[in-house]
Amino acid sequence: MRPHVVAQVAVSVDGVTSGFAVDQARFYALATLWQEDVTLIGADTILAEEHSLRATQQRAVRAAGPLLAVVDSRARVREWESLRGLGHWSDVLALYADQTPARPLDSVTPELVTGYDRVDLTEALDLLGSQYDAKVVRVDSTGRLLTALLELDLIDELALLMHPVVVGNGQRWDPAEHYRLSLANAEEFEGGVLWLRYCISGLVE
């Protein structure tokens, strides 16, 4: 059975996801409420942080933590041991496709191969449910991965941590389609930050 998939995104009032001070402590404190079994993230997000990953002090694996699954169709991620050593996750899992370039022969990173040229996200989620007993998957992405999951109708719940600022220019959370959202919960925090939880019930016809 496919797990429940939730995406949590920090945004400004005008829908920008960068260029403002995100309340990181609040964001990740709220993220723990999902109690996800798997954190799903795209290779681009990991690659943007590779330099800092190398300099981060390594910690013990968090045995009770979620599994980190990285969509990496082109096998670009190299800092697998650094990711494992952050102390957030129980282990890391590389999501590859049949045509993903060959990995180093000495690689010990667990792999899940699905799809031909690119990772088949639908099948990957099904396999995370059946092979890894995942009940809840949290998507940690504001870019192409989130957009692709939305287009495939694979996001069940969307949580926006809206900051009271208008940025104007910057990377926007801007899906290509219009989705029907049902407000499940709204909460205001100190400083005017809003947490808006929506259930997604499909595309607007």
Rank of each mutant, 00 (worst) to 15 (best):
A21E: 15
A21F: 08
V22R: 13
V22D: 11
V22F: 10
D23I: 09
D23N: 15
A25Y: 04
A25C: 01
Y28C: 03
A29K: 08
A29M: 07
A29C: 04
A29D: 11
A31Y: 03
T32L: 06
W34I: 05
W34M: 03
V38D: 13
V38R: 12
T39P: 00
T45N: 05
I46V: 15
I46R: 06
I46Y: 07
L47F: 11
L47K: 14
L47Q: 14
A48D: 11
E49Y: 05
H51P: 00
H51A: 13
H51D: 11
L53S: 11
A55V: 08
T56H: 13
R59I: 10
R59K: 15
A60C: 02
A60D: 09
V61M: 04
A63S: 15
A63Y: 11
A64F: 01
P66M: 09
L67V: 12
L67S: 05
L68A: 15
V70A: 02
V71K: 01
D72T: 06
R74G: 09
R74Y: 11
R74D: 15
R74V: 08
A75N: 15
A75R: 15
R76I: 08
R76D: 03
V77H: 01
V77E: 04
R78P: 03
W80P: 05
E81Y: 02
R84C: 06
L86R: 11
H88V: 10
W89G: 01
W89F: 10
S90I: 13
S90H: 14
D91C: 08
V92Y: 14
V92A: 12
A94W: 10
L95E: 07
L95H: 07
Y96I: 11
A97M: 09
A97E: 07
D98Q: 15
D98N: 12
T100S: 13
P101C: 04
A102P: 01
P104E: 14
P104D: 13
P104Q: 11
P104F: 07
L105A: 15
D106G: 13
S107T: 09
V108M: 06
T109Y: 11
T109H: 12
P110C: 06
E111G: 07
E111T: 12
L112N: 10
L112T: 08
V113H: 01
V113Y: 00
V113C: 04
V113W: 00
Y116F: 10
Y116A: 15
R118D: 05
V119L: 00
D120C: 06
L121N: 03
L121T: 07
E123Y: 00
E123H: 01
E123W: 00
L125V: 10
D126Y: 10
L127F: 07
L128G: 06
G129F: 07
G129W: 04
S130Y: 02
S130M: 04
Q131L: 14
Q131E: 14
D133C: 14
D133M: 12
A134E: 05
V136I: 08
V136M: 00
V137E: 02
V139L: 09
V139W: 03
D140N: 11
D140S: 12
S141M: 09
S141Y: 10
T142Q: 09
T142I: 04
T142A: 09
T142W: 01
G143S: 12
R144G: 06
R144N: 06
T147C: 00
T147I: 00
L149K: 00
L149C: 01
